[in-house]
């Protein structure tokens, strides 16, 4: 599947869903969550899949965006748009200053540092009750409006978040195929080799880290306005882990894989609720078996399968891992 075809297909899917199933809970509510998660997973995938930097603290950037929007619009009566930009500026700045010391770390140490960062942010959100409302969260966040077009129904939110997701996917695809995208992938292969080729690895890594943080912050602001309520548990350490799981489950280094992983992991718990007490166990078992049987991720794994079925031997699975799906 070529990239462009994939993008058309995704766009078609986003447009057709509400037409085929109008006013369906799974489309206008769950799919909106899936869209937000997809935005986050795609941004995290830039960092993890392409630059090879594990982050277990991505939810913190999401939380910063969400809380900046929430606090500025409810406590200081800001208009949502400048609040959103303020959130991105704040998050981007923090990410920029964090990037240098954090990205010097490798592997599990990097994972730990990002995880620690995420937890610290979460503790601040819980403890600074005066500003953040503490564990009970902040409510009555106003909704967005585009020149008088109020985003006040679930369907309208579907349109807004669907478009944002497509935009982010499109951006990510273009970034990966640009010059800096190639630099990024070289980084994943081998940092030393990339440096030898004259790539400024520190600048590239910092760039993609800040980029991922900015997108996450945007998603956070959208989330705050869509839910009209934010609380620390929507951006805790478990959510960071969930995001990583989405990226890996879908298939690392594949933008569509990240989207796919986000969709699967958002819908799965919704479907599993009927199992009540068995839900947790079944979810864990599915997660484990997926990774055992499709270690490259569901999306990449299924694509390989498809390829083998259609081309019989002409293409070997995982022939070119750097080829973005």
């Amino acid at each position: 599947m070529s990239q462009r075809k994939g993008f058309y297909l995704l766009t078609l899917l986003v447009v057709l869903l509400p037409l085929l199933f109008p006013d369906n809970y799974f489309v206008t509510v769950v799919a909106v969550s899936a869209g937000l998660n997809a935005i986050l997973a795609v941004s995290l995938n830039l960092l993890m899949g392409y630059a090879g930097q594990i982050s277990l603290g991505h939810a913190a950037f999401f939380g910063m965006g969400a809380y900046t929007s929430a606090i500025l619009t409810t406590k200081f009566a800001w208009n949502p748009w400048p609040a959103m930009v303020a959130g991105m500026i704040l998050t981007g700045t923090i990410a920029f200053f964090m990037a240098r010391p954090v990205l010097k770390l490798k592997g599990h140490y990097l994972a730990m540092a990002t995880l620690g960062f995420g937890i610290i942010i979460n503790i601040i959100l819980v403890q600074a009750v005066g500003l953040t409302g503490g564990p009970d969260g902040l409510g009555e966040i106003p909704t967005l409006s585009f020149f008088g077009w109020q985003v006040d129904t679930d369907l309208r939110w579907y349109i807004v978040i669907g478009s944002c997701m497509l935009l982010v996917v499109w951006l990510a695809l273009n970034l990966i195929n640009s010059r800096s995208g190639r630099a990024l992938r070289a980084l994943h292969g081998s940092e030393v080799a990339a440096e030898m080729m004259g790539i400024d690895t520190t600048a590239t890594k910092t760039g993609v880290f800040v980029m991922a943080a900015l997108i996450a912050s945007l998603a956070g602001s959208l989330f705050a306005h869509q839910q009209s309520f934010v609380s620390p548990d929507s951006c805790d350490f478990f959510f960071s882990i969930e995001l990583v799981t989405m990226v890996v489950l879908g298939g690392m280094a594949s933008t569509y894989g990240a989207v796919f992983g986000a969709i699967v992991l958002t819908f799965l718990p919704e479907l599993l609720v009927v199992f009540e007490d068995f839900e947790v166990m079944i979810f864990g078992a599915i997660l484990m078996s997926m990774m055992i049987f499709l270690p490259q991720g569901m999306f990449v794994g299924m694509q390989n399968l498809l390829q083998r079925l259609t081309h019989r031997r002409s293409a070997l699975p995982g022939e070119d891992p750097n080829e973005p799906a």
Binding site: M48, V244, I282, G284, A285, S289, M291
Partner: peptide, 28 residues
């Protein structure tokens, strides 16, 4: 042992899956 070819991150996800699974079993 079954996930021999899996990357480091994939194995991490397997262990996370296992932790959720064990929690679910204990819950039941």
């Amino acid at each position: 042992a079954r996930a021999r070819g899996a990357s480091v991150v994939s194995t991490i996800i397997i262990t996370i899956g296992a932790s959720i699974f064990l929690r679910g079993v204990a819950l039941l």
